[in-house]
């Protein structure tokens, strides 16, 4: 005898998910448009305090170590910077004019560019800075090789922190020849050019740099340099 069927017949229930997918896609689009995935980075700077410092306590920068970078920009009629320029000189500024011809006898100012690396070699201002900071840069490069080979520790976090600490030590090692960079910006200079200059300090592992105001000597040197360049 055939068994009687007691159960209700199972039917394949199909739910149409198309509207659900439509809605989800809309939500995804919304989230993608309204959110930020990339967080901004920050560049830390500390300015000297404004309080009057006793002249004797001020440590003068050694002439042989000083490099002054001056950033400047062209501006259009709306005051928006269009093209950035970089000038630099090494050591003390000199505006002597012995023969009284209205020109500075020996203008040590030079024009240079923010160029970065090309074919693995530093160009422009970076080449100058790297050359001045050679000892530190070489040591950091050696340290970086060790860090890449994970010589300090197999754990990434420890490896990183050891590398950071050692790099900081090298950057602040007073037994090495390290330059002191003075960054100055003309009134027309764009904010971008200043940040680029500060960035070069990071790239070239320069620990001693400062932002200063442009003074009369610098302006005189720059004016003289620009006149000479136009000829």
């Amino acid at each position: 005898m055939a068994k009687e069927k007691r159960y209700s017949e199972k039917k394949d229930v199909r739910v149409d998910f198309t509207p659900m997918v439509d809605m989800n896609m809309l939500l995804i689009t919304f989230f993608m448009l309204c959110t930020t995935m990339i967080k901004s980075q920050t560049l830390q700077i500390s300015l000297p305090s404004n309080e009057k410092v006793d002249k004797t306590e001020q440590n003068k920068v050694k002439q042989s170590e000083a490099v002054t970078i001056i950033v400047d920009s062209d501006i259009d009629e709306n005051g928006v910077p269009t093209k950035d320029y970089v000038y630099y000189y090494e050591g003390m500024p000199n505006i002597d004019d012995a023969d009284k011809d209205g020109k500075i006898d020996n203008n040590i100012m030079k024009e240079i560019e923010f160029k970065g690396n090309e074919n693995g070699k530093a160009q422009g201002i970076r080449a100058v800075l790297q050359d001045r900071n050679k000892q530190v840069v070489e040591k950091i490069a050696a340290l970086k090789e060790d860090w890449k080979a994970k010589k300090f520790s197999n754990k990434k976090a420890i490896n990183d922190s050891v590398y950071q600490a050692r790099a900081k030590e090298i950057r602040n090692d007073s037994t090495l020849t390290r330059p002191v960079i003075i960054i100055k910006a003309t009134p027309n200079a764009s904010y971008k050019s200043l940040v680029t200059a500060l960035d070069e300090m990071q790239i070239n592992n320069i620990s001693r740099y400062q932002i200063d105001r442009i003074n009369g000597t610098d302006s005189a040197m720059m004016a003289d340099f620009l006149v000479a360049r136009q000829k």
């Binding site: 920050t42 300015l47 000297p48 305090s49 404004n50 920009s73 005051g79 027309n188 940040v195």
Partner: peptide, 23 residues
């Protein structure tokens, strides 16, 4: 122009807030 940012930095310096970050 940097001169604009400089005014802000100068004001912070006057307030002895010498350390800050640039985004």
């Amino acid at each position: 122009p940097y001169s604009v940012v400089q005014v802000v930095m100068d004001n912070l310096q006057t307030l002895k807030m010498n350390k800050f970050t640039l985004m």
